[in-house]
């Protein structure tokens, strides 16, 4: 009856229902936040625990990101050694060097002639006297080539190597990538480790929120019973607890974000100083917009999930009496 009477003033029922729903949810969310603010100490402790649990994986993420960036800048400086055929004379080698040096995808070429190579080998190998007995220099000439900064990806590098090897007089080209491969393997390992740590700490967030919500349900047992008596649905009774969890998660996420931001800001200067000592420039990057959004979303998600679990486990035990 009442519904029919209302209809004329609200011409689009779907929109009106949506508005009602939004208004109700918004009110429930704000009322829950009010309640959290009313007990600041407990809220702060829960939020702090969540913030720390989230800040750790976030810090690892930032560290990895920076390490990878550092690795990227090293990748660019990876040199290519182009070994020339044995019958290539030093004059021909010099000609090749200037030819290659003119290419757009090459930054710098350095010729290591047969003699220079032998001298170097003599110096570093410790075989000095033995080498004197050789009738002929067995070492080929080598061109040490630094690709242009535009050559960044593995595919580009591989293409460049192939092109160099195809040159007449070239024997084979080798990229000095072993250390880079090791570096990438270590980074990959760190990535896996931090994912693992992230999972464990995510579980911690679930437990912290779950326990807090369990206590909240205990404290509001009377209220839950009365809501049950006056005809509130399970969903309605559950709602404020879920919002509690979501707020804890969001506030914890914000706390974690601040912690990571403070750490980056704090480390900026020492890292800059260290880079200076290596005659390079390196700025620590913090959480970008996407990573920040992901951090907050993870907080909200974990918080809601944690309270969902607690509500499912503990609310059903509250029966009217």
């Amino acid at each position: 009856m009442r519904r029919q009477r209302r209809r004329p003033s609200r011409p689009i029922p779907v929109v009106a229902a949506l508005q009602d729903w939004l208004a109700r949810e918004g009110r429930a969310a704000l009322e829950t936040l009010d309640r959290l603010i009313d007990s600041p100490l407990g809220t702060l402790m829960t939020v702090g625990a969540i913030a720390i649990a989230l800040a750790l994986p976030a810090t690892l993420f930032v560290a990895l990101q920076n390490i990878e960036r550092l690795g990227g800048s090293w990748d660019q400086s990876a040199a290519v050694s182009l070994f020339l055929a044995e019958d290539v004379t030093d004059e021909e080698a010099a000609e090749m060097a200037s030819l290659i040096g003119a290419r757009a995808d090459i930054a710098q070429v350095e010729l290591i002639s047969k003699e220079a190579g032998l001298a170097e080998f003599r110096e570093y190998s410790g075989l000095g006297a033995a080498l004197d007995h050789l009738s002929e220099n067995p070492l080929p000439a080598v061109l040490s080539i630094h690709p242009a900064p535009e050559i960044r990806t593995r595919a580009q590098t591989q293409a460049l190597l192939a092109a160099l090897e195809a040159l007449p007089g070239a024997d084979f080209a080798r990229l000095d990538t072993q250390w880079a491969q090791r570096f990438h393997a270590i980074v990959a390992l760190l990535r896996t480790v931090s994912l693992l740590i992230g999972c464990v700490l995510g579980l911690t967030v679930l437990l912290v929120v779950g326990n807090t919500i369990r206590l909240e349900i205990e404290n509001r047992r009377g209220e839950v019973q009365i809501m049950d008596l006056v005809g509130a649905t399970r969903g309605f009774i559950r709602r404020p607890f879920l919002y509690s969890g979501a707020w804890y998660g969001l506030l914890g996420g914000i706390g974690a974000w601040l912690m990571v931001g403070a750490a980056v800001l704090w480390l900026q200067e020492p890292v800059g100083h260290l880079a200076d000592l290596y005659h390079t420039q390196f700025d620590l990057s913090g959480l970008d917009l996407r990573a920040s959004a992901a951090l907050l979303a993870a907080g909200v998600l974990m918080g809601t999930l944690g309270s969902w679990i607690a509500v499912g486990r503990h609310l059903s035990h509250v029966e009217p009496d």
């Binding site: 019973q225 009365i226 049950d228 008596l229 006056v230 005809g231 509130a232 649905t233 399970r234 309605f236």
Partner: peptide
């Protein structure tokens, strides 16, 4: 819950 909305309940201890 929808049934309870049809039944108003009053208790000795008010609740």
């Amino acid at each position: 819950p929808f049934h309870r909305r049809q039944v108003g309940m009053i208790f000795q201890d008010h609740r």
